[in-house]
Simulated assay, not measured.
Amino acid sequence: MEKTFNTRSMIFTLYGDYIRHYGNVIWIGSLIRLLQEFGHNEQSVRAAISRMSKQGWLQSEKKGNKSYYSLTERGRKRMDEAAERIYKIESPSWDGEWRILVYTIPEEKRHIRDELRKELVWSGFGLLSNSCWITPNPLDEQINNLIQKYEIEDYVNYFRASHEGMKDHQSLVENCWDLDEINELYSQFIQDYSQKYIIDKSKIEKGDMTDGSCFVERTMLVHQYRKFLFVDPGLPQELLPKNWLGDSAAALFADYYKTLAKPANRFFESVFEQGNPDVQKDNGYDFLNHPLIHNQSTDKS
């Protein structure tokens, strides 16, 4: 298969969707074999693993002559945060309050300021004005973690407030986020994957699609859908336009994901068990009904 995404990104996807449910550790030989399905060679996998280790996402352990890699605590936290958003089916309800973050980070700490901006965008904050960020979502825990991580307690103020004017909520949203552009991305996702979903579902039912192909398609689906984490702020339904396609895209993703899940997991386990015979699957992991998908369905019942 032609290599479509860079090796580092694919490794993150495999950890998030598979490996973290199997002891959070994998023999590098198994990882190389899995990534061969996507066209990545051994050299590129080893180079990516080395970079990710230096960046603090992965840690290594030697057992005999074999090297095993697991997510660091930092890596696990990021995966958990991502999972909470990637598997949600519908947008959350709103308590009517805005969270406001204001900072004055000095010029000599510019690198921290730049990193903080990236983290805020990823978390779903919108830039209202210079160094003033807002979100309607309850992200208090994430903000406290960021403040501690970058040690910026002396430069930050954080508020919870109601918006009294002068513009309405919709104007405020339009000022901070380009929802039309995000909606167009969701529209493209639905166009690209609706037909693929129908075709692959038919193939699986007829036994015409291999486990390896299902593994590739499921992983690529998650990898593609994961991109919305970086552009969609996850606004409550009350603040979204009437023609919003995010929930439809999430439902399509969930249906397609579940259709591919069993054969994909079967292929992953066949490769994983050869190099990691002593690792057990997490008891709470159900690849057919991911707990975060299940919880959303329960909330709506």
Score class of each variant (00 low, 15 high):
residue 2 E to F: 09
residue 5 F to T: 00
residue 6 N to Y: 12
residue 6 N to K: 15
residue 9 S to W: 11
residue 15 Y to S: 07
residue 16 G to K: 06
residue 18 Y to A: 10
residue 19 I to Y: 06
residue 20 R to W: 04
residue 23 G to Q: 11
residue 25 V to G: 02
residue 25 V to T: 15
residue 26 I to R: 09
residue 33 R to P: 00
residue 33 R to N: 15
residue 34 L to D: 04
residue 35 L to R: 07
residue 40 H to A: 14
residue 42 E to N: 09
residue 51 R to L: 13
residue 53 S to D: 09
residue 55 Q to G: 05
residue 56 G to T: 06
residue 57 W to V: 14
residue 59 Q to W: 02
residue 59 Q to N: 02
residue 61 E to T: 11
residue 63 K to A: 00
residue 67 S to R: 08
residue 69 Y to M: 13
residue 69 Y to W: 12
residue 69 Y to S: 04
residue 70 S to R: 12
residue 74 R to P: 01
residue 77 K to F: 09
residue 77 K to W: 10
residue 79 M to T: 07
residue 82 A to D: 12
residue 83 A to T: 02
residue 84 E to K: 13
residue 91 S to Y: 15
residue 94 W to Q: 10
residue 96 G to I: 00
residue 98 W to S: 11
residue 102 V to G: 01
residue 102 V to E: 01
residue 103 Y to H: 15
residue 106 P to E: 01
residue 107 E to Y: 08
residue 107 E to G: 01
residue 108 E to N: 07
residue 108 E to I: 09
residue 109 K to G: 04
residue 110 R to N: 12
residue 111 H to S: 13
residue 116 L to R: 04
residue 117 R to P: 00
residue 117 R to Q: 07
residue 118 K to E: 15
residue 120 L to K: 03
residue 125 F to C: 04
residue 127 L to W: 12
residue 130 N to P: 00
residue 134 I to W: 10
residue 136 P to N: 01
residue 137 N to A: 14
residue 138 P to H: 04
residue 143 I to Q: 03
residue 144 N to V: 00
residue 145 N to G: 03
residue 147 I to L: 05
residue 148 Q to H: 08
residue 151 E to G: 12
residue 156 V to S: 03
residue 157 N to T: 08
residue 159 F to W: 14
residue 162 S to T: 14
residue 169 H to R: 06
residue 171 S to L: 02
residue 172 L to N: 05
residue 188 Q to S: 05
residue 193 Y to G: 11
residue 194 S to N: 11
residue 199 I to F: 08
residue 202 S to V: 11
residue 203 K to P: 01
residue 204 I to K: 07
residue 209 M to K: 12
residue 213 S to I: 01
residue 215 F to W: 09
residue 216 V to Y: 08
residue 223 H to S: 06
residue 228 F to P: 06
residue 230 F to K: 04
residue 232 D to I: 06
residue 235 L to T: 06
residue 235 L to Y: 10
residue 237 Q to A: 13
residue 237 Q to S: 15
residue 238 E to D: 11
residue 240 L to R: 06
residue 248 S to A: 08
residue 248 S to I: 01
residue 251 A to V: 05
residue 253 F to D: 05
residue 253 F to R: 05
residue 256 Y to C: 02
residue 266 R to H: 12
residue 272 F to Q: 00
residue 277 P to T: 12
residue 279 V to S: 13
residue 280 Q to W: 01
residue 287 F to L: 01
residue 293 I to Q: 08
residue 298 T to F: 08
residue 298 T to V: 13
